[in-house]
Write a protein that binds this DNA or RNA. Structure first.
Lengths: 335, 335
DNA sequence: TTGTATGCGTTATCAT
DNA sequence: ATGATAACGCATACAA
């Protein structure tokens, strides 16, 4: 690996001059510039980003922390962030938190230690206080899908409560009143907010929340199948099911088919997130759109504007969920 | 951000001593160790990974390059790599190549510039020569799903040709002989190898390859629906369809349903990759298992063994595809 | 066991 | 316009 020193020697100039042509921020005569460029070429010189970062205290890279690297939801989010940043010549350093407090902290600190110019995090296990404390450091932290009051201008979130409300309301408007619910892990704010919305829709239509029609899953396919298994085993009847995300909905749909529950004639299902494959399930899944990809792009735009000082960027911090009607809900006659 | 210098001052020792307790590789008296630890505590000291990396020429992090951050395939791969590495206390720096030569090079050089101890890459657009050249640098490069002769001991790959062969053979064994094929982008080695396998299975059973039953898609859902649209439009008849990956299979399945082609009675479909949701489609998708997650883990193990010198690790560089029989293939009578 | 001094590859602040 | 030289925060060979 050639260093800037070797380049300077070959070009017959000083270190400083080489550095100048690299960052072309200062005047360098065309002649010497040419010599330096040539030297770089023949040596196959590549700047050492680490050294640049240490000296300039700027890494031109932003850290991303997500819970998992797999899963359509996180994929869309990362993809949105990266697309926008990459277009601006910035790089992304991704790591994971696995929804565990220690790992999230570890990941966050790793990112800070790597001198990221900013961090975009989707954290679920660490406390608000911890985040606020960390935000006092030199690395700005932006939060995805989470609202922390003290950091509200750095938070991008979906109105999950409203989404949960819409999902259940949609079922009610199709004539359903016996509605089961498979929730996500309640320590996740997304999950608990969606559930709150569900309860609001219920009470607004004078339907009592029924504990026996309720199950807490893991936000994965298995959570959906286990949930439906549990609900069916109870023997209580219900005509509709809300799943707090699409993965669980797909698991429930599969379980239903395997146990001869006709979809949607015997059971209507609505999911949440509108991940890509929701549209490829059978029946195609009616769900609540969660524009994660756009939210990711927006997070990226925020750091582009606030950290890298790009102009003419419109910011929007709250995203609204919308119901995507497909074929997994059947209308039933109201008596 | 407190530095090692401030810690040393507060603890009343030298820089070197602080450094020693951090890396606890040299003997330090319990007493002074305690003092240093205490000083770190009260200052909330966090080592600057950048500086460590510059000084030690080791970053304890490995770079990953994938084409896309979204998509079940890449998700499984990244996840496998990260799981294994994280368990060993190493971090991962992920970036993308978007299947474009310039971006892949850019990503690779970014990773090298960040001083990664090794790189695990899934590159599709850069040439073998470029990779070989890059491998002569100080950063070892491991290749996922790609075989480069000169670097064969650093390549982890699936026998895609065999997989393609198995897929078509499976259809043939179910009595099909009119078999259409929706391929992936042919500049991708995976895609072209799978196609080769398909042709081999065909010729082995004396079935001529028919250009009219062939379409090249984009490895995404849209490729599958466009492909089936194209094939159906031709008016030629076929009873079975091989899709070079599951996303395209799901797209084709959706298109089939929308155009009243009964699955699997009128059309049998087999996919490739066995991504998670293949098991949640309807009918559940018969496909060729591509153990990307395990392959990711294996790549991680290779760097753990060869770069970080961990012992007792078994290495396996070639993975075999297997057919996962589900419900998307119908047996038909052979005349 | 502990401290001193030097180097890692850049950027940046001075001069010239 | 260009060249010395001091940071940047840490690791490490060498001394003590």
């Amino acid at each position: 690996m050639a260093t800037i020193y070797e380049v300077s020697k070959l070009a017959g100039v000083s270190l400083a001059t080489v550095s100048r042509v690299m960052n072309n921020n200062a005047r360098v005569s065309d002649n010497t510039k040419k010599k330096v460029l040539a030297a770089m070429q023949t040596l196959g010189y590549r700047p050492n980003a680490i050294a640049q970062s240490l000296a300039s205290n700027c890494s031109n890279s932003v850290g991303i922390l997500v819970s998992e690297l797999s899963g359509a939801f996180y994929g869309q989010m990362m993809s949105g962030i990266e697309t926008e940043l990459r277009a601006a010549g910035k790089h992304v350093i991704i790591t994971t938190g696995h929804s565990e407090e220690e790992k999230e902290k570890d990941g966050l600190e790793f990112l800070i230690g790597r001198n990221c110019d900013a961090i975009i995090a989707h954290v679920e296990a660490v406390s608000d206080e911890y985040i606020v404390e960390l935000s006092k450091g030199k690395t700005p932290i932006y939060l995805m899908s989470r609202h922390v009051e003290a950091l509200s201008e750095k938070c991008i979130s979906l109105d999950n409560e409203h989404g949960g409300y819409l999902a259940t309301k949609s079922l009610i408007e199709h004539g359903h009143s016996k509605i089961a619910y498979i929730a996500g892990p309640q320590f996740k704010a997304d999950a608990s907010n969606r559930l709150q919305g569900h309860k609001r829709a219920l009470s607004e239509h004078n339907i009592a929340f029924d504990e026996t029609l309720f199950f807490i899953g893991d936000f994965k396919e298995t959570g959906g199948s286990e949930g439906l298994h549990h609900l069916l085993k109870q023997g209580y009847d219900f005509t509709a099911l809300v799943c707090a995300n699409d993965e669980m909905a797909s698991g429930a749909m599969k379980y239903a088919r395997e146990h001869n529950v006709k979809l949607p004639s015997q059971l209507s299902i609505i999911g949440f997130d509108n991940v890509i494959f929701a549209n490829y399930l059978y029946p195609t899944l009616t769900t609540v759109d969660n524009p994660v990809n756009e939210m990711g792009r927006m997070a990226a735009k925020m750091v582009l504007k606030e950290i890298y000082h790009q102009k003419n960027i419109e910011i929007n911090r709250i995203f609204e969920p919308t119901v995507i009607l497909r074929n997994s809900i059947k209308s039933i006659k109201t008596t």
